[in-house]
Amino acid sequence: MDSVFQRLYTEYQQDVFQFLIYLVKNRDTAEDLLQEVFIRVMKSYENFEGKSSEKTWLFSIAKNVTIDHFRKQKTIRNRVMDHFDWGKRDIESSDSLPQEIAEQNEDIQRLYRCLDRCSVDQKMVVVSRYIQELSITETAEILGWSEGKVKTTQHRAIKKLKELMAEEEEGDHDEKITMER
């Protein structure tokens, strides 16, 4: 096995996978995308100029792969909406929770679901900043945004998550009352 591949894989695969799975919410898809990330990384490694850190370079590839994936999904979804079954097949968002999430408390599970209802930009910022614990500067580099845009998107994402969490809680609460009647 190529020593560059081995080093990059050992060092980053878990972080990259984490980034992918929190964005696409499906283990199989995330694994496929992980593979694609490393294919692209190896293809362009010799052109890596070291302008950014290796880590942000790798994550920016992961971001591109994810965006391509979402774009493709959207095309499929449009097509599906157009003449087939509007979301039952092909679309992945309604998958069951990964085991690691299902083992967590209710709040975490709820937050995981809420994350899905944020925009792709918001999700990317939240995952980079809180799950990957990257700095604002690193996140801006990865996403190719200004630091200002990272900050505003982050602010909006947290606000949205607050609303969604309250909404979900309300929903669960209402359900319980109805059940008790």
Binding site: D2, L34, D107, I131, L161
Partner: peptide, 24 residues
């Protein structure tokens, strides 16, 4: 919300380095 986000668990990949390398 922020502290809850930081508590999100690590989800591990099941693919091996060999498998991915083959595809590369």
């Amino acid at each position: 919300i922020e502290s809850l986000l930081k508590k999100m668990p690590v989800i591990e990949s099941r693919t091996s380095a060999e498998e991915i390398y083959q595809h590369v």
